[in-house]
C-alpha cells in the first residue's frame, strides 16, 4: 500500500518551494506588533520555509524507515 508520507512530503516540498520562490521574487512584508515593537516579516518566504522543512522532514521519515532492516 502507498506510504501516505510520500505524497505529503512531495506536496509540502512543492508548495514550500513555490512560496519561498514567490516570497523572494515578489517580497511582501507583513507587520506584526509584539510588546510595543513592530517586526516585519516576509510571510511567504518565512512560512514557505516552514512548509518546505515539514515536507523534507516527512520525506526523511520515509527514507529512515526504508533504511531500517525489515523484521
Amino acid at each position: 500500500m502507498l506510504d501516505i508520507r510520500i505524497p505529503i512530503a512531495a506536496l509540502f516540498i512543492v508548495v514550500g518551494v513555490l512560496l519561498v520562490g514567490y516570497g523572494l521574487a515578489v517580497p511582501t512584508s507583513v507587520d506584526v506588533p509584539v510588546n510595543g515593537n513592530t517586526y516585519t516579516f516576509n510571510l511567504n518566504r518565512d512560512w514557505g520555509a516552514m512548509i518546505l522543512l515539514f515536507g523534507i522532514f516527512m520525506g526523511a521519515l520515509v527514507k529512515m524507515d526504508k533504511a531500517k532492516p525489515s523484521k
Binding site: L2, I4, P7, I8, L11, F12, V30, V32, L43, W47, M50, I51, F54
Partner: peptide
C-alpha cells in the same frame, strides 16, 4: 489518505492567522 494530507494543510494554512 487525503484526510491526513488535508489535516496538515489545515494546520499550516490556518496557524499563521492565529499567531499574527
Amino acid at each position: 489518505y487525503n484526510e491526513v494530507m488535508q489535516f496538515f494543510l489545515i494546520v499550516f494554512g490556518l496557524l499563521p492567522i492565529s499567531i499574527i
